[in-house]
Deep mutational scan, measured.
Amino acid sequence: NQASVVANQLIPINTALTLVMMRSEVVTPVGIPAEDIPRLVSMQVSRAVPLGTTLMPDMVKGYA
């Protein structure tokens, strides 16, 4: 089972991601792979992401 990136806190719209905002977790459906966490740092979210939400490619500007 592949771990995905999950929000560790509420991430407001247009916030630049930092390591403390993200954790890896095995979830369904699968989201952005956990190994991409270093690449996500400083990228902005395109919408508010609630705590515990799996990050999907369309939620991060410039990821897809």
Rank of each mutant, 00 (worst) to 15 (best):
I11L: 14
S46P: 03
V30Q: 07
P33D: 07
E35M: 09
E25Q: 07
A48K: 08
P50Q: 13
S24A: 13
L51I: 15
R23A: 05
A64D: 13
T54S: 04
E25M: 08
T28I: 06
N8W: 05
Y63H: 04
V60R: 01
T18F: 03
V20P: 06
Y63A: 03
T18W: 03
V26D: 15
A64L: 12
L51R: 11
A64N: 13
I13A: 11
P50L: 13
A34W: 09
T54I: 10
V6I: 15
M56T: 13
L51H: 15
Q9L: 10
S4D: 01
L55G: 00
S24N: 10
E35F: 10
M59N: 07
N1M: 15
L40F: 02
M22C: 03
S42E: 07
G52Y: 04
V49L: 10
V20W: 12
R23N: 04
P12M: 07
M43H: 08
S42C: 13
S24L: 07
T28A: 14
M59P: 02
A16G: 05
L10G: 12
A16W: 09
M21E: 01
V30H: 10
V60E: 01
G31F: 02
L10W: 09
M59F: 08
M56L: 14
V49S: 02
D36Q: 12
V27L: 06
A3T: 11
P33M: 11
A48E: 14
G52Q: 05
S4P: 00
T18V: 06
A64C: 15
A16H: 10
T18G: 04
P50Y: 13
V49N: 02
V20K: 13
V6T: 07
L17M: 14
Q2C: 10
Q2M: 08
E25Y: 09
V30W: 10
Y63M: 05
P38W: 08
N14G: 11
M21D: 04
D36L: 08
V20I: 08
G62C: 11
Q9P: 00
V27T: 08
T15K: 05
P12K: 07
S4E: 00
V41A: 07
K61C: 14
P12A: 11
D58A: 10
R39H: 10
E35R: 05
P33N: 13
N1W: 13
R39K: 13
I13T: 09
V26G: 04
K61A: 12
M43P: 00
I32Q: 00
Q44I: 12
V5T: 09
P33V: 12
R39P: 01
P38G: 11
A7I: 10
E25V: 07
A16C: 08
A48L: 14
S4W: 02
P12E: 14
A7E: 00
S4C: 05
V49F: 03
M56I: 10
V6P: 01
S4Y: 03
V6K: 04
G31C: 03
N1I: 15
T54A: 05
S4V: 02
P29G: 04
T53W: 14
N14S: 13
R47C: 04
I11P: 00
A16P: 07
N8T: 15
G52M: 05
L51K: 14
A64T: 14
I11V: 06
T28D: 15
E35W: 10
I32R: 00
V27E: 02
T15I: 12
R47Q: 12
V41K: 05
V41Q: 05
